[in-house]
Design a protein around this nucleic acid. Structure first.
Lengths: 89, 89
DNA sequence: AAAGTATTTAGATATTTATCTAAATATTAA
DNA sequence: TTAATATTTAGATAAATATCTAAATACTTT
């Protein structure tokens, strides 16, 4: 839970997630869309992976990143405890 | 949105929100439940207030804090864009 | 095997953040 | 009005984080 909130507490990382929502991308493709060095993006991807928000698969020379939405559910539940959406009737 | 994620990226602050879910509390009552100094708790409350997650009302000598759930909706929507819960049928 | 490409790891640095103590402000009670 | 209580503000410090460049690793192509 901690790692999840930590991972989401950065605009670059949230933007990466939104990109991956559209389609899977390689580390390089992601880096190319930011004015940030590749090592920095690599680090962001690592944090997203640690939080379980993305999954990486090696495809030859490339590493493809894709979204893992199941982890979002945990967060969804946490938020719903505060909202009225969880009231019966 | 940035302030919202920032505010939630701290276990103490998340715990404060869970306390306020049960009932409104004064700054002192909140501080008493942690082994953290009052100024530090005051600072956490300030960040929560900046994010719109809590509202404070002065009641004489005390300041009462209460949850503001409406802000959570914004976050809920952000998360739902990734989940399958928003698919039609 | 050597060169090129993709990505990560290592190490450094500047900024942000959580925390503390001391002091300031504001309200209540004596 | 003085003392006590509640909370915040100010200023300092240690730890965490985002970023960079340089180097290492791993795969592919020639």
């Amino acid at each position: 839970m901690n790692k999840l909130f930590k991972a989401l507490n950065d605009p670059t990382r949230r933007e990466i997630l939104e990109m991956l929502k559209e389609k899977d991308l390689t580390a390089g493709e992601i880096a190319d869309r930011f004015h940030i060095s590749k090592p920095s993006i690599s680090h962001h991807l690592d944090l997203l992976r640690q939080a379980g928000l993305v999954v990486s698969v090696k495809e030859g020379q490339f590493i493809s990143y894709s979204l893992n939405t199941t982890v979002m559910d945990e967060m969804l539940q946490w938020i719903l405890q505060f909202t009225n959406n969880n009231k019966s009737s």
